[in-house]
Amino acid sequence: MEGKLLLQQYQKRVEQQLETVLQKTCDAERVRLAMNYSLFNGGKRVRPVLVYMANQLLNGQLAQADSAACAIECIHSYSLVHDDLPAMDDDELRRGKPTCHIAFDEATAILAGDGLQPLAFELLATDNGLSAEIRLQMVSVIARDSGYLGMVGGQSIDLSNEGQQISTEQLELMHRHKTGALICASIEMGALSSNHASKADLHALKSYANAIGLAFQVKDDILDIEGSTETLGKPQGSDLQHEKSTYPALLGMEGAKQKLALLNEQAHASIADFGDAAQPLHWLADYIVERQY
């Protein structure tokens, strides 16, 4: 199936799955609405798509990957809600819509993020379609890659480096944690969900995920300069405003684009041994570097 159609199919699937996640009303209705607002704020769903693609590459069943796809999107959405807060990046737009703390209020946004995070673990822990062993492995992966050794650690490094000049090595370390860790978690959980993942499979897929995870951030840095607020759905030039170190700032725009091309090559090479079965992942790597938002 053509890559774009497959992307749309998986995006639609995870959207349908997520719609059931927060259906139940509760006594804390305002925070539920804020969580729902943040989950359905127009994301590309790249991480759930990676879950499904890894599952299918290893001949898994899509139903086995649904809880992992929803869980990773819950974690990603929570991270964006907190990332936008006044104490962090203080952004008012996310995907062309008011950020959660603007649409609701700061306290509710914090609680919405706090609610989305444990929801991810609940989804994994209660999936009776997976063995207890696979569920435990998935919980371990998402806990590690979303915590201080992964995404949270990367965000901390990012905040501590605002207004400072850092090296390209430090920048890469930060982004491998902040952006790359969840992308790696997506690939790993998708592979685990198939019940057919060998150590060699996981090694190759993690190499792919490391390459596209960093490529995703390099492309974001480029778009922050070359994109428009209307296209990006967030203020153009926000990295410059927050005095963040970026690849164009350290390497120049041409150097950043060369870095992006190299990472794309590495991504393709890392999954070459899977043959034609990996075509969706090859397509996704190109999509990440060619996207305009």
Rank of each mutant, 00 (worst) to 15 (best):
E2L: 07
E2I: 06
G3S: 10
Q8A: 15
Q9T: 13
Y10T: 01
K12S: 09
K24Q: 15
C26Y: 06
D27R: 15
A28G: 05
E29F: 05
E29W: 04
L39D: 06
R45W: 06
R47K: 15
V49I: 14
V51S: 00
Y52Q: 11
N55G: 04
L57I: 11
A63N: 12
Q64D: 15
D66R: 04
Y78Q: 02
S79Y: 11
S79Q: 07
L80T: 10
D83T: 10
L85C: 09
A87G: 11
A87W: 08
D90F: 14
C100P: 00
C100A: 07
I102G: 03
A103M: 14
E106V: 11
A107E: 10
T108S: 13
I110L: 14
L111E: 01
D114Y: 13
D114C: 11
L119W: 07
L119S: 04
A120N: 06
L123V: 05
A125H: 06
T126D: 12
T126E: 10
G129K: 09
L130D: 00
A132Y: 08
I134G: 00
Q137D: 11
Q137F: 01
V141D: 04
I142F: 14
D145M: 11
L149E: 15
G150S: 09
G153F: 00
Q155S: 09
I157Y: 11
S160G: 00
E162F: 03
G163I: 02
Q165R: 11
Q165P: 00
E169Y: 01
Q170I: 02
Q170C: 00
E172D: 14
E172Y: 02
L173N: 06
M174P: 08
H175V: 05
R176W: 04
K178S: 02
K178W: 07
T179N: 03
L182E: 11
L182Q: 13
C184Q: 15
I187S: 01
K199S: 06
A200K: 07
D201S: 11
K206R: 15
S207C: 15
N210V: 05
I212F: 01
A215H: 12
F216C: 13
V218T: 05
K219Y: 06
K219L: 12
I222Q: 00
L223D: 03
L223T: 03
I225R: 03
E226I: 09
S238M: 14
L240G: 08
L240T: 15
Q241V: 12
H242C: 02
H242I: 01
K244A: 09
S245F: 04
S245V: 02
T246N: 01
L251K: 12
G252Q: 07
K257Q: 15
K257C: 08
L262R: 10
L263S: 06
N264G: 07
Q266S: 12
H268G: 07
A269C: 01
S270Y: 07
I271R: 04
F274I: 05
D276Q: 14
L281K: 02
L284G: 13
L284I: 12
L284T: 09
Y287R: 08
I288F: 08
I288Y: 05
Y293I: 09
